[in-house]
C-alpha cells in the first residue's frame, strides 16, 4: 500500500514537472521540430544563419515588426565588424535634437541606437494592418509557447484553406497559428531576398535563418550563460565532493 502511494506520488510529480514541457508542444498541434545549433548544452548561435536572418528581418519583417530592444552595437556579437555595424545603423533615420534653436531634426542612426519601430504607435500600426497589431520581435522567440520551433512552423505553416474551414475576409490560413486564422499574410516567398553569401533563399532556409536571428535577439547572452554554467557546475561538483569527504571524516569519529 505504502509503496503504491509512493510510486503514484512520484508518477504524478513527474507529470507535473513535465507540465511546462507539455505546454511547450503548442496546444494540440505538433510543431515542426528543428535541431537548432544553439539549443544543446554547448550550443552556440550559427553566425552565418543569424547574419542572413538579419537580412531577412530587414528586408521582409521590418516593414511591420519592430525590434526595439536590440541595439545595433550588439550586432557585433553576430560577427559583424564595427564598421559594418555603423553602416547598418546609418540605414535608419532617427529624430535628433533639439538643436540650439530648439528644433528637432533627422539624423542617421548610430551604433548605440536600437532598431526603430515601423509605426509611431500601436494605433498607427493597427490602422495600417487591418486592425491587427504586428508584435515587436525582440522577444518573440521566448514569448511564444514552442519557442524557435513555433516561429519556424508558423512561417512555413501557410497552406491552402482546408475545405469547410471558414476564413474571415483578409485573414490567411496557417496550420500552426492558434485558431488557424492569422492576419499576417505569408511573409516570405521563394527567393524573397538575395543572400550575399550565395545561399539559396528558399522559404525553408529563410524561415530558419530569421528564426536563428530572432532567437539571438531574444536571448543574446545564451552563449555566455552556458559557458559560465559549465564552469560553475564543474566547480560545484568538485566542491561538493570535497564537502562529502570532509563530512565523512568528521562524522567518522562518531557512533
Amino acid at each position: 500500500m505504502l509503496k503504491l502511494i509512493k510510486s503514484l506520488s512520484a508518477a504524478v510529480l513527474l507529470s507535473v514537472v513535465t507540465l511546462s514541457g507539455a505546454q511547450a508542444s503548442g496546444g494540440g498541434v505538433d510543431l515542426k521540430s528543428v535541431n537548432w545549433q544553439h539549443t544543446g548544452l554547448f550550443g552556440t548561435y550559427d553566425r552565418a544563419a543569424a547574419q542572413r536572418g538579419l537580412q531577412v528581418y530587414q528586408e521582409v519583417c521590418a516593414g511591420c515588426h519592430g525590434l526595439n530592444q536590440v541595439a545595433f552595437r550588439t550586432l557585433q556579437d553576430l560577427g559583424f565588424t564595427e564598421d559594418e555595424v555603423k553602416a547598418i545603423a546609418k540605414e535608419y533615420e532617427f529624430e535628433g535634437g533639439p538643436n540650439d534653436d530648439g528644433d528637432m531634426f533627422d539624423r542617421a542612426g548610430k551604433p548605440f541606437d536600437k532598431f526603430p519601430n515601423p509605426f509611431a504607435n500601436e494605433k498607427a500600426a493597427r490602422a495600417s494592418n487591418g486592425g491587427a497589431f504586428p508584435p515587436d520581435l525582440s522577444l518573440i522567440v521566448k514569448a511564444r509557447v514552442g519557442f524557435e520551433d513555433y516561429l519556424y512552423s508558423l512561417m512555413t505553416g501557410y497552406a491552402d484553406t482546408p475545405e469547410g474551414f471558414e476564413l474571415t475576409e483578409g485573414m490567411s490560413y496557417n496550420a500552426y497559428f492558434p485558431g488557424h486564422q492569422i492576419a499576417m499574410p505569408a511573409p516570405i516567398s521563394e527567393e524573397g531576398v538575395e543572400y550575399s553569401d550565395g545561399t539559396k533563399a528558399t522559404v525553408d532556409q529563410m524561415a530558419k535563418d530569421v528564426t536563428v536571428f530572432l532567437a539571438w535577439a531574444a536571448e543574446p547572452k545564451l552563449e555566455q550563460r552556458k559557458h559560465m554554467g559549465l564552469r560553475v557546475i564543474l566547480f560545484l561538483l568538485v566542491m561538493t565532493g570535497l564537502f562529502f569527504a570532509v563530512k565523512k571524516k568528521i562524522w567518522s569519529d562518531l557512533h
Binding site: L236, F243, K247
Partner: peptide
Amino acid sequence: VKDLFGLGVFLIIFC
C-alpha cells in the same frame, strides 16, 4: 559540514 554538503548538491540543481 553536513549542511555544506547538502548545499553543494542543492546548488548543482539550482545551477
